[in-house]
Structures are given as structure tokens and as C-alpha cells.
């Protein structure tokens, strides 16, 4: 869809002229992706000199989030605020240029810099271009997480508070809605309930989806931490466990951190950047919960398929929940001791 035919192109032009100094208009407006809860658009702000490459994150159709990740999503104005706070705390993020206002007429959303880089895991893990970056990534991820967890809670916008017990309940409900027996999931839920850190455990800002796809990588390392939609207040170890889930290693099973690094490097980066002492047992707890979360999400694809979303891809993702079951058993009942 070209800028000239887009129904909100004129409104966006006005907003960009008002909000970004030197901007004269917009060009090359192009939809990148659209989930149930957010749209992402690429465009350039034209200026007297070089154009400024930008990204627009917008609620679907411009209206407020009502479905999909809506129940747990933070909202676009909140996301923009978090990116600004994270940037000030030294986390690599795309600078936010403009938060859309009601009278801009574009809907809820914000505009940020469009940073070049790679988010596709298989390329990051295999392409020669990233060979020098790969050994550094685990430590850099630890540093980024430490900085974002340290952000002063008093400065944060209102966020969902979700300790371990809350996360377990939420996913147990989703699993029960699917109404298909998964004894391995039951075992994992039981283990999680028995081993959950107390609700009072250090509660900080948590990114909530810190993994491949949301990490923009360049040949020198992490360029930006993206998609703050699932940010909440929780146990900081949640972010460290989630990036170690085997589903994000893409076959590189011996590099637990995103398929590119070791836990030791992640933890060392975290502690060196002032994140405090890492508790490996709690990280493992969150790795178990993260693995189970992805398994339950695969079963929700089955529900979507049965409810009428009849794509072959959607259907077959249901047959990937078993991947998480073997990972859960390897974590909870390993066949080889030690």
C-alpha cells in the first residue's frame, strides 16, 4: 500500500511535521507486520537533507487494543515511555521520536527510529556476518537485562504486576481451556507450584519477551531491544530464564542463551552491569515456566485452528507442543544423572 492511498497517511504527515523538527513530509509508508494487537509500519520522514528512517507502531486500525495479547499487553503509550526510560538507563533501544496524540488522528501509537539490523534467529546463528558478534551476545544480553531491571520503579508507568504464582495461574487456565490431557504439562505445573519463588521476591521491571525476534543484532552485537509490549513488574530472573528456553536455541542446544552463548556469560554480564547476584535455581525455575508457556501457546494454536483459522501452518504448530514436553522432562527428570 503506497503512502498516497493510505487512509492515515495525511494524518501521519501532519503529526510528523509537528513532532519531528525539520520534517517536511513522509514517504515510502509500508506495512511490515500486523499482529492481533499491534501494527508495525516503516516510513521515511522527508527533510531538507537526508530522509529519516522511521517505524510507526500503532494499535490495529488505530483503536485501542482489545484482543490477542490485549489482556497482558502494556499499551502503546506505556511501551513508548518504557523505551524512553530504557534508553536513558543505557539499554540499546530505538529512540522514540513522537508519541501520537488524540488530535493527530492516527490512533494510538508512537514513532521511533528505524534501526538497521537482523532479528531472524537462523541468520544471526549461522551467517558469517555475525560470526564476531555471536561470542559477545550472551554477555551483552546480561548487561542489557541488568540495566533494564535496575530502572527506578518510581519512574515507571502503571504496569501489570505478575509474580511467578500469577504467571503459573494464567497459563494453567489457558492450558485447561484447551481441554486436552497433557500429563507432562501437569507434572511441570505441579513442579512450578511447589517450587515458585515467594510473591515478595525482588519485583522489578521485566521485559517479558526478551529473545530472538525482539533483539536487533548487527555485526558488532546487540543494536536494539524491541517489542516492550509484554513488559510488566515481576521477578527479574524471568527474563534470564526465558532467553534460555530450548525453543529459542534453534538446534544449538549446547548454547543455552539463544543458541549463541553460555549461561555463565549471561550471568557474568548481568552481575558486572550491576544487576545483582544471579540465582541460577530461580533462572532454571523460569526456564521451566518459559518452556511450558511456549508449549501451552502451541496448544492455543490448535484452539485457533479448530475455531476456524484453518491454515496448514496454524494446524501444524499444535504438533510442536511435544517439543516442549521433551525439554520439560530433560529439565525435571533427566535420564542421565549429573
Amino acid at each position: 500500500m503506497g503512502a498516497e492511498t493510505n487512509p492515515f497517511a495525511d494524518a501521519l504527515t501532519g503529526a510528523v511535521r509537528r513532532g519531528i523538527s525539520g520534517a517536511t513530509g513522509i514517504a515510502n509508508l509500508k506495512r511490515l507486520s500486523g499482529g492481533a494487537s499491534q501494527e508495525t509500519w516503516a516510513f521515511d520522514a522527508t527533510t531538507a537533507g537526508a530522509p529519516i528512517p522511521l517505524i510507526l507502531r500503532r494499535a490495529p486500525g488505530g483503536t485501542r487494543v482489545t484482543e490477542g495479547r490485549g489482556s497482558t499487553a502494556a499499551g502503546l503509550e506505556t511501551e513508548a515511555k518504557l523505551i524512553q526510560l530504557a534508553g536513558a538507563a543505557g539499554v540499546a533501544v530505538p529512540p522514540v521520536r513522537l508519541v501520537l496524540a488524540e488530535d493527530d488522528g492516527v490512533g494510538h501509537g508512537f514513532v521511533m527510529d528505524r534501526i538497521e539490523g537482523e532479528t531472524i534467529a537462523r541468520k544471526i546463528l549461522r551467517d558469517a556476518e555475525f560470526a564476531d558478534a555471536r561470542p559477545k551476545l550472551a554477555r551483552q544480553c546480561g548487561e542489557m537485562l541488568a540495566r533494564l531491571h535496575k530502572i527506578d520503579k518510581a519512574t515507571l508507568p502503571p504496569l501489570r504486576v505478575s509474580p511467578a504464582s500469577e504467571e503459573i495461574d494464567q497459563y494453567y487456565k489457558t492450558y485447561k481451556t484447551h481441554d486436552h490431557p497433557h500429563p507432562v504439562f501437569e507434572l511441570a505445573f505441579r513442579w512450578l507450584k511447589d517450587n515458585a519463588p515467594p510473591d515478595a521476591t525482588a519485583m522489578t521491571l521485566v521485559h517479558g519477551d526478551f529473545r530472538h525476534g525482539n533483539l536487533m543484532i548487527g555485526p558488532e552485537g546487540v543494536r536494539a531491544v524491541l517489542d516492550w509490549e509484554l513488559a510488566h513488574i515481576g521477578d527479574p530472573m524471568e527474563d534470564l530464564g526465558w532467553i534460555c528456553v530450548n525453543s529459542w536455541r534453534f538446534g544449538n542446544i549446547d548454547n543455552p542463551v539463544g543458541g549463541f552463548g553460555k549461561r555463565e556469560d549471561l550471568f557474568a554480564g548481568y552481575e558486572a552491569a550491576g544487576g545483582g547476584k544471579v540465582d541460577p535455581e530461580r533462572v532454571k525455575f523460569w526456564e521451566v515456566l518459559g518452556t511450558l508457556k511456549w508449549g501451552v501457546m502451541c496448544t492455543t494454536m490448535v484452539m485457533a485452528f479448530k475455531a476456524g483459522d484453518r491454515s496448514v501452518e496454524r494446524a501444524t504448530i499444535g504438533r510442536r507442543s511435544s517439543e516442549t514436553e521433551v525439554d520439560l522432562l530433560r529439565l525435571l527428570a533427566p535420564r542421565k544423572k549429573g
Binding site: 511435544s322 517439543e323 525439554d327
Partner: peptide, 12 residues
């Protein structure tokens, strides 16, 4: 399950 669903999966 894995032998049927995803026999090449790393964890399996």
C-alpha cells in the same frame, strides 16, 4: 510423540 511429530528436534 516426538518420533511422530518432530523427530529432528534437538531436545529429542
Amino acid at each position: 510423540k516426538l518420533a511422530i511429530d518432530q523427530p529432528n528436534y534437538s531436545g529429542y
